[in-house]
Design a binder for these strands. Structure first.
Lengths: 120, 120
DNA sequence: ACCAGATATATCTATATGAGATATAGCTGT
DNA sequence: ACAGCTATATCTCATATAGATATATCTGGT
């Protein structure tokens, strides 16, 4: 799939599904990888589960692309040294917003075409 | 990404992006491949364009999965023998609906997390 | 009738993404 | 000390998409 003649922040759209889930999970709090996994499962009512392979390779890609950053310090009260915390960058938030807008249009498209969703 | 413990019609969710676009394009009319391409471009305001590689390989997959069927006869008035027309099956429509519902939940998720889309 | 260009389908290779398995180490409670 | 959960990481394989290319058919102009 291609998206336009792209001189803009839409370059990386559409986002892979796992990527979008991770950005959403980070949109309201800094989290470590495993917490992202749990958060996605919870928010989707268990319907979508990231597996480790997808999760960590996607995290690495997001770091390279500058959509998220790793924090130096753990939040106060957390001394589990294994955890690595990540935060959405302004750029990452921007991309997530654009993707949400795109998905939103997609949904509108489907509805107008007569594909009313069962619920929601 | 995985979707549950699947004894149901959600087996094939989440749909690849191109797949969903094709199903939507077929949801209100029978069309041939090239027409699907144009339809998707038009419905998305030119923002999403299927290229031939993606289009035809996806069509073959959809035929195998029984989500669409190829029509024997061309619509009256069309004598372009190159065209191959496709129609959404009841099963295909069901899957498209489920996918729409899933996307719809995704959008709701993003909104609640504070990612308000710019427009729409 | 001829030709150019658009229409239409198809296939090939390469890359990106995701699933699933496996590994390893640090925590927590008993 | 041990079991089991938490947490990150990596490997291999399958699938999905992009992009290039090929080829045939149709349409309009001359």
């Amino acid at each position: 799939m291609s998206s336009r003649s792209d001189p803009s922040p839409d370059d990386q759209l559409p986002l892979p599904a796992a990527t979008f889930h991770i950005l959403v999970a980070l949109s309201d709090a800094d989290r470590h990888g495993y917490a992202i996994m749990l958060e996605v499962a919870e928010r989707t009512g268990g319907r979508t589960k990231l597996n480790p392979g997808t999760l960590y390779t996607t995290i690495h890609r997001l770091l390279e692309q500058g959509l998220i950053v790793e924090l130096d310090a753990r939040p106060a009260g957390d001394d589990d040294q294994r955890r690595r915390y990540y935060r959405l960058t302004p750029c990452g938030r921007q991309v997530a917003k654009r993707e949400l807008a795109r998905l939103s249009e997609l949904v509108a498209l489907g509805r107008h075409a007569g594909l009313a969703p069962k619920r929601s």
